[in-house]
């Protein structure tokens, strides 16, 4: 299943199952995600894309009945191992959500807050500026840093969320359909931004938009419900994006990417 030959691996899953109570929402996922690349997770809705990406920084912990079997390895450490602190995991693996969710604070504080709680010792003003520049937002907001983040447009808010994520310098940035609530122009800006970001970060993105996956990602994981009718999602094919879209191995992937699916 793995066609990745250069083993510069940021994170990998081994025989990963994610359960809600007794229901396995995601089963048997084995993927290796390469450093400083964009990896897209695509698939029909309800196949467990969000559940899978949320497993990478233990956001599923907040669903009371959820648990995980198998391993997710970051630099050889299992994120679900015994002595792992989920707060440290999230510190290293940031996340951008479907709907922009800036804090009800000023633009400046939105970025400085995460740095402050995580013990940042450098120059805060510089960090804010660099992060905003990194998220291609600086020019738009440099004159209103003290204003509430809620005064920004949806697209700007989403870029602010990206800026606050890169401010804490994670290893990996997870993006859960980051453009689904945005207009096409804002979407385009986010997509361009991802190309910039992958120079420094490993990006995993969930998208329901195949064109987007084709445009932005280097690798693509195709998810699908298992054939056995268990309503459990799994990765049926994982490979370079080019291959997935031009020469898929799995018939179901081919059906899906060519639009013949459901």
């Amino acid at each position: 299943m793995n066609n990745i030959n250069a083993p510069d691996i940021a994170i990998e899953t081994k025989n990963l199952f994610i359960f809600y109570g007794s229901f396995a929402a995601v089963s048997e996922v084995n993927i290796k995600i390469e450093k400083q690349k964009v990896t897209a997770i695509i698939g029909p809705s309800g196949c467990g894309k969000s559940t899978l990406i949320r497993a990478f920084n233990r956001m599923n912990d907040f669903v009371p009945s959820s648990y995980v079997t198998g391993e997710i390895l970051l630099q050889g450490q299992n994120l679900y191992g015994k002595n792992i602190d989920p707060v440290e995991v999230r510190r290293k693996i940031g996340m951008v959500f479907q709907k922009p969710n800036p804090f009800p604070k000023s633009i400046y504080e939105n970025i400085s807050w995460g740095a402050k709680i995580n013990g940042f010792k450098g120059n805060m003003d510089e960090l804010v500026e660099q992060s905003l520049r990194g998220a291609a937002l600086w020019d738009e907001v440099k004159d209103k840093l003290k204003k509430s983040a809620y005064e920004l447009s949806g697209g700007q808010q989403q870029r602010l969320c990206i800026a606050r994520t890169i401010a804490i310098q994670p290893e990996i940035i997870l993006m859960d359909e980051p453009a689904s609530a945005l207009d096409p122009i804002s979407t385009l800006r986010i997509e361009e931004l991802m190309q910039e970001l992958k120079k420094n970060y490993t990006i995993i993105i969930v998208t329901h938009n195949m064109q987007q996956a084709a445009r932005v990602s280097d690798y693509t994981a195709m998810m699908m419900l298992e054939k056995d009718g268990s309503r459990s999602g799994t990765v049926i094919e994982f490979s370079e994006t080019k291959k997935i879209f031009t020469n898929p191995k799995d018939k179901r992937t081919e059906d899906y990417v060519t639009g013949r699916f459901g």
């Binding site: 940042f120 450098g122 401010a167 310098q169």
Partner: peptide, 9 residues
């Protein structure tokens, strides 16, 4: 990679 990274514990 990025100097800011060094300012974090």
């Amino acid at each position: 990679m990025n100097p800011n990274r060094d300012y974090y514990p």
